[in-house]
């Protein structure tokens, strides 16, 4: 397993592109993405549509922004060897918190954003502390927190609630040229996470803890703090996604997170991007590729008007096949 690491060609320069191409798992997903785009272009052409039309490209970005933001948070958690199954309910919760506090008034927007960030950071803190202090496996800990949030949502809400002022809806619908604001937000979150992982001490520690927590601890890393930090960051990402979805819906909805399947889908996107589920290997670039892959697949389905159940089947096959090919490459490399 360690052999490929030694054999890896060390890039001579230090340029951004060289660094990106050194991230091999991410390269695989971009090759797959390129192939899928060619396939999509062909299928669109046969179907009488234009794949590279502005409408379609904007649509792909719109659809992938929320999942993309959640998946970036999920990447951090998975890299540190943990997991977060609570993001879907947290997204619903934060969308409601945002819409309820805004209550349709412009003046309340800053307060609502602050509240959402506080609620999500707190949830992440709770997740992280349960995992580290109480030593509950992240799978069970975050599942439990998800159930708690679900109970609170079921108790208080039957349907959409609150209201988002028009000024805040710009976040969900406006665009700068061919780039929707939501996609720019996604890019900003991604860039922050990339900087965090590649340039900061915390980033290196995340890889160290995910690679081997015991070795990291013996090398003087306070592993518990790192795990708590990634859980907080992941939940904050979910909170940002909640804000985005609230601005799109114009209200908060108790089912917006679970309907999107953001918990399992974000994990799927991370793993598609070549990040190891056990932690310690991978990165943000791969995750962005994984999310785009899912979104392009979706846009092809929409163009061909594929039945939504067939979509699930194809998605499942793609997920397993991609991972199988990836595992094969890693072994033969």
């Amino acid at each position: 397993m360690t052999q490929p690491l030694k054999l890896r060609r060390v890039p001579a320069g230090n340029s951004f592109l060289r660094r990106l191409s050194a991230d091999r798992p991410a390269r695989a997903v971009y090759v797959a993405l390129a192939l899928l785009i060619v396939l999509g272009w062909l299928l669109f052409a046969l179907d009488g549509g234009r794949f590279l039309s502005q409408e379609n490209i904007v649509g792909i970005q719109q659809r992938s922004a929320a999942l993309g933001i959640v998946a970036i948070g999920q990447t951090l958690v998975i890299l540190a060897g943990s997991l977060d199954l609570s993001v879907a309910y947290l997204i619903s919760l934060t969308s409601l918190v945002a819409a309820e506090i805004m209550a349709g008034a412009d003046a309340n927007v800053p307060a609502a954003v602050a509240a959402v960030l506080a609620v999500s950071a707190l949830t992440g803190l709770v997740n992280g502390l349960i995992v580290t202090r109480l030593r509950v496996h992240a799978f069970i800990a975050t599942l439990g927190v998800a159930l708690i949030i679900r109970g609170a949502l079921d108790e208080r809400y039957d349907g959409p609630a609150g209201g988002v002022p028009e000024s805040f809806q710009h976040l969900g619908y406006d665009r700068v040229g061919p780039f929707p604001v939501s996609a720019l937000l996604w890019a900003a979150v991604g860039a922050c996470a990339w900087l965090l992982l590649s340039r900061t001490r915390l980033g290196y520690r995340i890889y160290a803890v995910g690679g081997d927590a015991e070795v990291a601890r013996l090398s003087g890393v306070r592993t518990e703090r790192v795990v708590v930090a990634v859980h907080v960051l992941c939940s904050v990402c979910a909170g940002i996604a909640g804000l985005l979805l609230a601005s799109r819906l114009g209200a908060g909805a108790p089912t917006v997170g679970t309907d999107g399947g953001y918990d399992l889908e974000s994990i799927a996107a991370v793993v598609l991007g070549g990040t190891a589920l056990a932690g310690g290997r991978g990165g943000v670039a791969g995750t962005v590729g994984g999310v785009l892959l899912l979104a392009v697949l979706d846009s092809i389905f929409n163009q061909l008007e594929v039945n939504s159940f067939a979509k699930d089947v194809v998605r499942g096959v793609v997920l397993v096949a991609a991972l199988a090919i990836h595992a094969r490459r890693r072994r033969t490399a």
């Binding site: 069970i140 599942l143 439990g144 079921d154």
Partner: peptide
């Protein structure tokens, strides 16, 4: 679900 979540975490902890 909320009570269930609390109890599961507590029991495993």
């Amino acid at each position: 679900p909320a009570v269930q979540g609390v109890i599961i975490i507590a029991a495993v902890a």
